[in-house]
Design a binder for these strands. Structure first.
Length: 572
RNA sequence: CGGGGAGUGGCGUAGUUGGCAACGCACGUGCUUUGGGAGCACGAGAUCGUGGGUUCGAGUCCCACCUCCCCGACCA
C-alpha cells in the first residue's frame, strides 16, 4: 500500500478528548475517528488491525470446532419478550418500531436467536454437541462511553454459543472455550488473567472474565499471587475472622454532633472504624428500599448486595427523601426504628458485638448496637468488598487488588434461552430434553485498544506482528536525488504485494521530509521499518529497523527482498 | 442520572472594560530544500455548538437547550 493513497491522516497534536494512550495513539496515527459518544469509524488502518484480531479469534474458535455463521443485528422484540429480557434490561437495549409499528430491538447479544435456531434445526441428540459463533455489531446504549475504543456503544463482538446435551457437556465446552481464550489472548499479545465473575443479566451458573491488567481498568480484581486465586471484586468472597467475643452491653445513646462520616465519628468517639456500623441505602429496580449495614472499615459491594436481596432491575443509591420516608436519618442512619425497608446485614457485622450505629436522629448515635437484638436483619450475607491484604479464600495468604479491563468472558448459561425458545432434542431414551447452552464473548475493538495499551512507547504504537496492519513500513528518502531509491522501493513494494496479504507492506512514497516520514513510521507502529536512501545504498543496501527495540542494521538488498517475500523474524 | 470540565477554520489554542475574529500546525500554488516533524512568498478555509434575550454593537453579558470529555452507578 502506498501511503500517498491511504485514507488517513496523522495528527501532530494530541486531541484534547483523548486521555488513555490507546485512544490518543489510535486517533493520532489515523486508525479511527469518532462520530459520536461511543461511536467510531475504523479507517483503513484500523479496519486492517481489527481484521487481524478477528482472524486470530476465528482460528482459535475454529480449532475447538466452532462454526462461523452470521445472525442479524435487528431482532423482532417478541423474541426478547419470550426470554424475559425485553423488560428485564433497561435503556441500554436499543428499541424502535418498524414501518408497521412492530417493536424491534437492536441486538446487544444473540442468545435468543441461537435458541430459536436450535429449536428449528436440532431434533436429535446425534446433532449435539455443537458450537457456533459470529462477528457481529452490537448496540448497547451504555450510560457512559469512555476511553476511546475501550468502552463504546456500538462495537463488533465475537459471540460464540455452545450447545450441549447436558451439564457435563457444557462443562467440557466451557473448558474448551477457556483454552481457546488463553491461546487467543496470548497470540494477541495481551497478558490476561481469568477471574471468576458475576453472571449478571445472562443468568446461569458460572462465569469467568478474561481481564487485561491495566491501571485504567474499570474492574477491580482480587488476586492471590501465592496460589493463583483470581476473582472479580464483585464476587470475591474473602473470609473474615471472627471478632473477639464480648458480652452484649446495654444500648446507650450518645451525642455525636457533625459526625456524618465514619472517619469523623470514629475520631469523635475515639474508637476504631471497625467498632462502628455504617448504613448505605439503595432503591431496587422493583422499588424496594434496601438498608445495607456493613462495618465502618468496609465498603458495600453492590453486586453482592443486589444478589443477596434478589434485586430485580438493578439498584441505585436511594435519595434523601426515600431514606427519610422509611424513618431513617441520612448520616445518622441505622435500621433501628426503620420501617418499609429490606435490612441486609453483612455477616461480619452480625458477628461483631457492641458497635456504634446511627440513632436516626441528627447528631446522635447509639453505642453497643447488636444485630438481632436491636434490629432484625431480613438478609445476612457477605455484602462487602474484599480489601487489599484480606486472606485468600483458598490458601489464606494476603490477596492483592488490581485493575483490569474485561477483554472476554465465558458464561455457563444453562437452559434459560433454550427453554424460552422451546429448543429440545430427543435423547437416546426417546424423551425430549432441553439443550444446554454456554455463551462466550470477545469485544474486537476493545482488544485492539488493549493491544495498544500493552504495546506502545512515547513515539507511538508498536504492533505485535500477529496483528500489525502491514508487515513492514518502507521509508524511501532522496528518490529525487538517486533514481535507484525509487526503483528499489517499487521493487520491494511489488514483491510484498505478490507474496500475499500477510506480507503486504506500507510504502511511504510521499514527498515529505525524512523527519516526517520517520516520525509517522514510528507513530503508525509496524513491527519493521525499512529505509532505502542514497545513504543506505552507499552503506550496502537497505536499513532494517525493529520498531520494538530500535535495533537497526543495513542489510544487502537480496536479504531484504527475502524478508519481504518470506516474512520477517517474529519477536523474541 | 449525580458531580466536574469544555465547545472559536481539519488539529491545538488566543481572544483584554462588549468595538474589524487572531496565532501555530495542517491544507493549495510557486521556488528552494531532502537521514529526524524544512525555508521563503502568495493563497484558500469560521454564519465563534444551537435558539432566544440585553445592547448602537455580543466570541465576550443573561436564559434555555444540544453535544463532547472526565469521575461515579453498568458491561465485551
Amino acid at each position: 500500500m502506498r501511503l500517498s493513497h491511504l485514507f488517513f491522516a496523522t495528527l501532530r497534536d494530541d486531541p484534547t478528548e483523548a486521555e488513555m494512550p490507546s485512544h490518543r495513539l489510535l486517533l493520532r496515527a489515523g486508525y479511527v475517528r469518532q462520530l459520536g459518544s461511543g461511536i467510531y469509524s475504523l479507517l483503513p488502518l484500523g479496519k486492517k488491525v481489527s481484521d487481524r484480531v478477528e482472524q486470530v479469534i476465528r482460528e482459535e474458535q475454529d480449532r475447538i470446532g466452532g462454526q462461523e455463521m452470521e445472525m442479524p443485528v435487528v431482532h423482532p422484540a417478541d423474541i426478547w419478550r419470550a426470554s424475559g429480557r425485553y423488560d428485564a434490561i433497561g435503556p441500554e437495549l436499543g428499541r424502535f418500531k418498524d414501518r408497521n409499528g412492530r417493536d424491534m430491538v437492536l441486538a446487544m447479544t444473540h442468545e435468543e436467536v441461537v435458541g430459536i435456531l436450535l429449536a428449528d434445526i436440532v431434533k436429535s441428540y446425534r446433532q449435539l454437541p455443537m458450537q457456533v459463533y459470529h462477528f457481529q455489531t452490537k448496540w448497547r446504549d451504555e450510560p457512559r462511553a469512555r476511553g476511546g475504543l475501550i468502552r463504546v456503544r456500538e462495537f463488533v463482538m465475537k459471540d460464540a454459543y455452545s450447545c450441549d446435551l447436558d451439564q457435563a457437556g457444557l462443562d467440557a465446552s466451557y473448558d474448551a472455550q477457556h483454552g481457546a481464550y488463553v491461546r487467543t489472548f496470548e497470540r494477541l499479545g495481551l497478558d490476561t488473567v481469568a477471574v471468576a465473575s458475576d453472571v449478571g443479566i445472562m443468568g446461569g451458573s458460572q462465569a469467568h472474565e478474561f481481564m487485561f491488567l491495566n491501571p485504567a481498568g474499570e474492574d477491580v480484581l482480587v488476586l492471590c499471587e501465592a496460589c493463583g486465586y483470581a476473582a472479580n471484586r464483585q464476587v470475591a468472597a474473602v473470609p473474615r475472622p471472627d471478632p473477639t467475643p464480648e458480652e452484649p452491653l446495654p444500648l446507650e445513646e450518645v451525642a455525636t454532633p457533625g459526625t456524618t462520616t465514619i472517619a469523623s465519628l470514629a475520631e469523635f468517639l475515639g474508637v476504631g472504624p471497625e467498632r462502628t456500623a455504617k448504613a448505605a441505602f439503595f432503591m431496587t429496580g422493583d422499588a424496594r428500599l434496601v438498608t445495607a449495614i456493613v462495618r465502618g472499615d468496609h465498603e458495600v459491594n453492590e453486586t453482592k448486595l443486589g444478589n443477596a436481596v434478589k434485586a430485580i432491575g438493578g439498584m441505585r443509591p436511594a435519595t434523601v427523601d426515600e431514606i427519610k420516608a422509611a424513618g431513617m436519618e441520612p448520616g445518622y442512619g441505622s435500621p433501628m426504628g426503620a420501617r418499609d425497608t429490606v435490612v441486609a446485614v453483612d455477616d461480619l457485622v452480625a458477628r461483631s458485638a457492641n458497635l456504634v450505629a446511627g440513632a436516626n436522629r441528627e447528631g446522635f448515635h447509639y453505642r453497643n448496637v447488636n444485630s438481632g437484638r436491636d434490629y432484625t436483619p431480613d438478609v445476612t450475607a457477605d455484602i462487602t468488598n474484599a480489601q487489599e491484604g484480606d486472606a485468600c479464600p483458598v490458601c489464606g495468604k494476603p490477596v492483592i487488588l488490581r485493575n483490569g479491563i474485561e477483554v472476554g468472558n465465558i458464561f455457563k448459561l444453562g437452559t434459560k434461552f433454550t427453554d424460552a425458545a422451546g429448543a429440545t432434542y430427543l435423547g437416546e431414551d426417546g424423551q425430549a430434553h432441553p439443550i444446554v447452552m454456554g455463551s462466550y464473548g470477545i469485544g474486537v475493538g476493545r482488544n485492539v485498544a488493549c493491544i495498544v495499551e500493552a504495546h506502545h512507547d512515547d513515539k507511538g504504537i508498536v504492533w505485535p506482528a500477529e496483528v500489525a496492519p502491514y508487515a513492514a513500513h518502507l521509508v524511501s528518502i532522496g528518490g529525487a536525488k538517486d533514481p535507484r531509491v525509487t526503483e528499489i522501493a517499487e521493487r520491494l513494494h511489488a514483491l510484498a504485494q505478490d507474496a500475499g496479504p500477510r506480507h503486504e507492506i506500507l510504502w511511504d512514497d510521499r514527498d515529505e521530509s525524512p523527519g516526517v516520514k520517520f516520525t509517522d513510521a514510528e507513530l503508525l507502529g509496524m513491527p519493521w521499518i525499512l529505509t532505502v536512501s542514497p545513504r543506505s545504498l552507499a552503506a550496502g543496501g537497505v536499513e532494517v529497523t525493529e520498531r520494538a527495540t530500535g535495533d537497526r542494521s543495513t542489510r544487502p538488498l537480496e536479504e531484504v527482498e527475502a524478508l519481504v517475500a518470506n516474512g520477517f523474524p517474529t519477536g523474541p
